[in-house]
Write a protein that binds this DNA or RNA. Sequence first.
DNA 1: AGCATTTCTTGCGCGATCCGCAAAGATTCT
DNA 2: AGAATCTTTGCGGATCGCGCAAGAAATGCT
Lengths: 215, 215
Amino acid sequence: MDIESERPGLRERKKQETRIALSWAAIRLAVERGLDNVRVEDIAAEAGVSPRTFNNYFSSKGEAIVARHFDRARQIAEELRARPASEPLWEALANAVTARFALGQDTGGESTPDRQWVDGVRLMINDPALTGAFAAAAAAAEAELAAAVADRTGTDAALDLYPRLVAGAVGVAIRVVMERWLNAEPPIPIARLLHDALGQLSAGLPVPPKGPSHP
Amino acid sequence: MDIESERPGLRERKKQETRIALSWAAIRLAVERGLDNVRVEDIAAEAGVSPRTFNNYFSSKGEAIVARHFDRARQIAEELRARPASEPLWEALANAVTARFALGQDTGGESTPDRQWVDGVRLMINDPALTGAFAAAAAAAEAELAAAVADRTGTDAALDLYPRLVAGAVGVAIRVVMERWLNAEPPIPIARLLHDALGQLSAGLPVPPKGPSHP
DNA sequence: AGCATTTCTTGCGCGATCCGCAAAGATTCT
DNA sequence: AGAATCTTTGCGGATCGCGCAAGAAATGCT
């Protein structure tokens, strides 16, 4: 699972295109038919490449499906580094996370009717066959976030627990928020949920007062 | 992955025995040879059952290997419920976690002292093929912990972010601590690491002061 | 104890996955 | 243009995960 933005020759561009085409095809088919009724063959056909080529890009169906979410999660670290150093860590984190998750919520570029996307993600989270790939992606993204946090705070990702705890906590927040957001009826703005979750984390997760926090 | 302690007939006992035998065999072989050099066939042979039976207990090698760790992680929720309600949440959590992780650290019962063992375990858990299984197990354990936290704090695991954030944060702490503990040279007492990690979490993960926290 | 029922084990076999290898095709470099 | 480099693709092999059905073991009922 590498995404290296080298200088954009025809070659690199095509690679990214097929990568995205494959991932997108995998998601679309999984949403339509259910994950178990999609073979690698179908995904490859949908993307216009051979089945063998699919495995040159992804080592499993799960990886392909999770790829886009992963690509986005990964950018959080980038976004954090782009934040002014004067910003307090947790404020910068909240801004970085919100920037990536609060707007182009679903497609990440194209606009597809939201309903389908919501169903797809819910499927993704609930299917045991995908939790693995999903978690692997999250772990990779967290590693980068941890490095960024280490740089910003002057800690060492190899020796200190701190940066990894922060990255892990942010990952947990995103995971919990996504799940809650997908099941919320009526819908709750995701920005609100994110702000709430990160606020609780940076406050040390104190036991909340009695009243229901879900108006 | 179900562990239901039903009434202990001969049948149930044997089932648990083969389950543990299979999981243990999987771990031992994976530590010795490396995960890729262990086939399901070998594990089954080691445990004295047919390869087909292996799949009646675990749907993958990874699941078998993670099973014991999972069983233990799962008991944290139990342990938490057993703590007096007067104890503050984070104190109770620290005690519950420590109770399960600070003693029979790796083996889970027997005492296998070796250095080679730790090396093997390190290699094993760093294997990408296992991250999935680990995550799945962690998710299951966290769900139970979230329920226990919800009960204790009067929150709702379905509606409030809080209990899930707490459970997730504890899961992250355990994960980070385990990784750090395995790579620590010289060794650091795991209880110290756990206390440190949970302390930072319940303090809101403030940016630590300059000095190195690793003496 | 005797017999029916439920549960677990096992062998067989199919569909699918993942990956190494080497030939063919496409892109880039000089 | 020609060489070098990378990508795609088909083929084949090693597993793997699991459904199915027969046999064995344990349990429940009388």
